[in-house]
Design a protein around this nucleic acid. Sequence first.
DNA 1: CACATCATGCGGTCTAGACCATTCTGGCCG
DNA 2: CGGCCAGAATGGTCTAGACCGCATGATGTG
Lengths: 267, 267
Amino acid sequence: MTIPAAPAADAPPATPHRAGHKYQAVRAYLADLIENELAEGDALPSERALTDRFGVSRMTVRQALDSLAADGVLVREQGRGTFVAPARVDFEMRLTTFGEDVRRRGMAPGTRVLDAATVPAPTRVAEQLALEPGEPVHEVRRLRSADGVPMSLEHAWLPARLLPAMLDDGVPESLYGALRAAGYAPTWGEDTISASVATPDEATLLQMQGSLALLRTRRRTYAEDTAVMYSQASYRGDRYSVVVPLREAKPTIVPRAARDADGRTDR
Amino acid sequence: MTIPAAPAADAPPATPHRAGHKYQAVRAYLADLIENELAEGDALPSERALTDRFGVSRMTVRQALDSLAADGVLVREQGRGTFVAPARVDFEMRLTTFGEDVRRRGMAPGTRVLDAATVPAPTRVAEQLALEPGEPVHEVRRLRSADGVPMSLEHAWLPARLLPAMLDDGVPESLYGALRAAGYAPTWGEDTISASVATPDEATLLQMQGSLALLRTRRRTYAEDTAVMYSQASYRGDRYSVVVPLREAKPTIVPRAARDADGRTDR
DNA sequence: CACATCATGCGGTCTAGACCATTCTGGCCG
DNA sequence: CGGCCAGAATGGTCTAGACCGCATGATGTG
């Protein structure tokens, strides 16, 4: 935001590096520019212009620009300039919550808690969470809906050791939120997706008529190295689908340099 | 005029830059080292050692190291050294074929062609492939099996314009292989996964008994910007599941610098 | 013996230049 | 009018240093 039009041409003596690194200042300035000022495809100030504006050397400016280019935010073109990169497809599935997911689809999420208790971990759950069998876990069963229409039955288990007080004030609005608040922000996970037929109980709760097909996901959620949650969700097959972006088959290793090396592409 | 700072003390021979850039040479050397000599976690030569070995400046060495670190092949640790990165989890789903997929699970893939013809594109297919309705497409229906057990019904459409002779010698072993051979190697795609109940016809072909739940995927496959295939597959719900790795929820923008900016991390 | 200190080596940041390769523009000339 | 060519501007590569902060192990010291 603050545009350092005049960067105190020489040495700011008091805090020379306390304020962080110079390239970070340049990067922050550029990031702000990209987010608030420029549109996709717009040109950024040239390296030499930034050099003048910030009173730093060109290598420092390039470090900022290159890091943004590496993040896919910028595209650099020799002889032309540096431009805001076109929005790229995100090739990674994200750990989203049901609430976020539904809102992103433009609907209002709803929740009905069916069951919540702290219990000894069942064998399968203990396996998935790498716990000793019988170690206490919070178990939560919820019926999730979108715009009032039942969509999914969720069954989640979290190690009680990580969040001892989680259920003290009732079931939290968001389990991921509770994990984040406890310092166990989910960082990665794994879904296993399958299909099966709803039990009569499930069919009733989800108000299914006609087709009884369910899309089931079993999810393990991790915060860094610790398993923080195991959950199963059953979605109405007629109302829910998952979109998975796909990348090309995995290349060898060390891509960038190899490209130019072998000119022939006769495969 | 100005004598170049580089004193050409050593080699300014016939082809000084014809052979490529210096940092690429360093990178290639390091890549070979990583692939053939070193194990996960091993230390690489220090920047200054590489500087001596190649007779280049440290910035040039760093460009090679940084690019490999950006590719996730190396991990740099201030004060300690540069190390071969641990094999990382692949957070991206890949465009795999049924055959590859089954073989990776240790089973033998099988195929029975049910139908193959070149026909005018149905409306929905034309939409998905961005064709004019009625434009000719190759249509292929196959029953796929693993170790002789029926697993999946596949229905695929490919623009005939891209591979005019695809069906001349019967149905190719691999549709992706045919695309690659024609210069349309698939580079990305998108699966939409849902669940539904098998029709009697599907149940018969897949020899389903008991549960009639199917896991269905609709896939669009692209080679760069051109849609090269649209396909639907129906998997037996009791025998097939999809594993999707998940990354943490998407951060705002501009991650790297922002991290250090707010000093407080009172955990 | 336990602990503080220091030297060393490492990657991280930064400078003030240089030349190269590519792209585009504008003016010149046929 | 059309095509060619020279600049100018841009990013790409590279140098030969400098100082900083961090991690580690050796060296003393109480």
